[in-house]
Design a protein around this nucleic acid. Structure first.
Lengths: 135, 135
DNA sequence: ATTCTAGTTTATAATTATTCTAAAGAGAAA
DNA sequence: TTTCTCTTTAGAATAATTATAAACTAGAAT
């Protein structure tokens, strides 16, 4: 991913490309594989990877702006921390309850044959399949 | 559900049947339909329904003891609060993002045709289907 | 280039959900 | 009853997240 794309992601999220934001965006999006993180893990990774210092609030704000703009998705995981995913395509997850790790499942790997119709005046927004793993 | 069953539920959860615990158990299990709640909503409902006073810690402890004993299940919902479900059979959920309400889906209503196999030495513990609703 | 202004970063405080603690209270056994 | 252990309770502690306010920049206007 080129720097120009990073700027696009920032602008489309309503964010001015500041030093911190560019570093966060590059860290999140300039990679081959998608990945999962929590605010805490991202904070630690950024601290290792870069020389800049980041206030937690900045990370929260930036990540949420990306999420609201659709550049990141949020994953439901039992537990206190919120997980984010740079994979924003329609897909599903394994969750390893031992290592607390998320593993992507491509949408094509799951085929649902039957699903109930939405109640009263509601519509189905999306279907998430979450597969818990044990040893 | 008779009182004797309430006592069984408490005993099997490693809890002595004290006044507070009996009231919580009766409120949760002496009903026809299963239902969903958070600690906060349960606290309010108990305050309305009964004359006893309950410390939040007591509700947390009792609910978690029931959960650990398998008399309640925990449901993943995006958001801060933890939802519990008195329906402990294998089933799925609609989640109404407007009203923040959970709606049960019977396991028979969902048929999954294809699912990936678990990675390396892992096994599949369970599969949760979560259907987000919009208006 | 310099200045100006609105948007940002940061440290810290506030908030919210949850868990812990220590003292007072209540079952159960002798 | 009397003791002993388990409970309840109020409030403190913890942890994730959000809000605040002052110091600081990016980008526009000059």
């Amino acid at each position: 991913m080129k720097k120009i794309d990073i700027f696009k992601k920032l602008r489309s999220s309503g964010l001015r490309p500041t030093k911190q934001r560019v570093e966060i965006a590059k860290f999140l999006f300039e990679r081959d594989k998608t990945f999962h993180f929590t605010i805490e893990s991202l904070d630690k990774l950024l601290a290792k990877k870069t020389t800049s210092r980041f206030a937690l609030a900045t990370i929260y704000n930036t990540v949420h702006a990306f999420k609201n703009a659709g550049h990141l998705s949020e994953v439901d995981v039992r537990g206190k921390k919120t997980y984010f995913d740079t994979n924003i395509t329609n897909h599903h997850h394994f969750y390893d309850n031992e290592t607390l790790e998320l593993i992507d499942i491509d949408a094509s790997e799951v085929v649902i044959q039957k699903i109930p119709k939405a109640p009263n005046g509601k519509k189905i927004k999306n279907v998430e399949v979450f597969i818990n793993l044990k040893n």
